[in-house]
Amino acid sequence: MQKIEEMDEMIKERNISMENAILLLKHVGYNKELKMIDLESFNYSLLSERMKEMINDENEKKKEEMNEKFLVDLSECYALQHSYFIPDEYRSIIVPPLLKAASKKEGNEETQKEVKMALLALSHVNTYFEIEQELYLNEITEIIEYHQEHQNLTRLAYQSAWQFLIKRFYWDKSLKEVIVKELHFAREAARELKELVKSVDWNRNEEENGRIEVLVIRRWFDVIYEFLYSNTLWNEEIAGLINCIVQVLRASRDNHKDIRNRCFDILRCAAENRNVKIDDLLKSGAIDLYLEEMKQSIISHSLIRNCYYFFLNVSKRLKEEEDDETEGKKRKEMKRKIFERMEEEGYEDAIAGFHDAVSFLNEKYYFQLSLDVSDYFVNV
């Protein structure tokens, strides 16, 4: 908080020009986003209040008097520095100019930097409140579609565009047709991840591998989790995305604990989503990975929870009645395959060994895990 207030005082006393202050704040915000650090002190600082006043002042000017670039700069600084949620009245002010800045299509390096910064700022516009579609949908859709055709964005900028849109999905389920069928999120996320993982040396540990590719992968994981949590449509592209997550997990499991754990979180979320097919989890190798992990001599509480939730959902969904005779036969065959793999991997012993941990987890972390061991078994 002290450094934030010191900068406000420097601006007030004219010891630093507003132009230089903005450049510094944008640089700080850029690095904060990449390293996933929150500066909560900014939210309640005098500098935050000063920026809100300046945003209001610039926005209230007549069109011919308004400095659009200055408003974009202020909006980027404010969005990138802010944690939690941006108030309604400021979201409605900053989103349109940021989208306009992000819509530039010139291919030069300077424009790419401007577009990347605008999209990065938009990706920080929170999910806590809904934003009217008129404020953003046509513009963000065009940005994503144009990149899919012309490849004009950096990987971070493209991921940021999706992050902004998927955050809107949390509140507005009417976006599912656009996200799933028109813009093909699952296909695009899988393609981007495949390209990113080629650039990472997975034999190096997390501390040595602090490249931007790893940071962008983590950001993609955030939106993939949000997508699977919110989505109610299925297509073949989602099966491809699950396959991709399994591949990343296998690559990262030895030296990148954070990425490995995020992969397990996503696969657990996929098992909870009734629109992700259990057959896709089986064919991708996700079930095998969970079974392998359960046999480890050391396993964290969070991963024990993941294992329980994963197999609880798999079991529940496979126990559902299927009226259609053909589908019923497919389900029975799939249950048989899963049960055989469980037997091979010693699943019953692992579940029984974890059972003593359930009460502790429920009490300490407020989980709602079942104490009935039979709930975690697939009855063929």
Rank of each mutant, 00 (worst) to 15 (best):
V125W: 09
D323T: 03
K3Q: 14
E343T: 08
E363C: 04
L135E: 13
F85G: 13
I86Q: 02
S92N: 11
N273T: 05
E226C: 11
E68H: 07
Y44P: 00
E9I: 10
A350G: 00
S45L: 05
A190Y: 05
Y44V: 10
E325N: 09
T141K: 15
A271W: 02
F354S: 01
E68T: 10
K62S: 14
L249F: 12
F311N: 00
K116W: 02
D349M: 02
R305W: 02
I4A: 08
A118Y: 05
K105I: 15
A157R: 05
V214M: 13
V276A: 05
Q2R: 14
E76C: 15
E33V: 07
D254R: 10
Y225G: 07
F377R: 04
N273D: 08
E130L: 03
I224E: 09
Y158V: 00
I338G: 12
R50K: 11
T141Q: 14
Q112N: 13
V223R: 02
H150I: 07
R187S: 10
E5T: 08
L120Y: 01
N275R: 06
L233D: 09
H184C: 06
L267V: 05
L39H: 10
N209K: 09
E5D: 11
I55K: 06
I37C: 01
E343V: 13
T232S: 12
S300P: 04
V197R: 11
D38C: 06
S17G: 14
F42H: 09
E327M: 11
W234M: 02
E177W: 03
L371H: 10
S41I: 00
V248N: 02
I287E: 02
K316W: 04
K105Y: 07
N203K: 12
D356F: 09
M7N: 05
L303Y: 05
I16F: 05
F169E: 06
D288S: 11
I93C: 09
I266V: 15
F221H: 14
R91S: 07
R155E: 15
L119K: 11
Q159W: 06
V216Y: 01
S230N: 15
L34W: 01
L39Y: 13
S174K: 10
R262T: 04
N20V: 03
I299H: 01
C77M: 10
E106C: 06
I217M: 15
E206N: 03
L291E: 00
Y128G: 09
E19Q: 13
G346L: 00
E293K: 01
R262H: 08
Q296D: 01
L122A: 04
Y308N: 01
Y170A: 11
N59G: 14
D279C: 04
N67Y: 08
E293C: 03
N261T: 04
D323Q: 08
I140E: 08
E333R: 13
R253V: 09
D38G: 05
L369F: 09
D349Y: 03
T232D: 13
T232E: 15
K105T: 15
E272Y: 12
I278V: 14
E272T: 03
V72P: 10
L282K: 13
E60K: 15
V314C: 04
E344L: 01
R14S: 07
K100A: 14
V214K: 08
V180H: 13
R317P: 01
E53C: 05
E40P: 14
C307Y: 00
K113R: 15
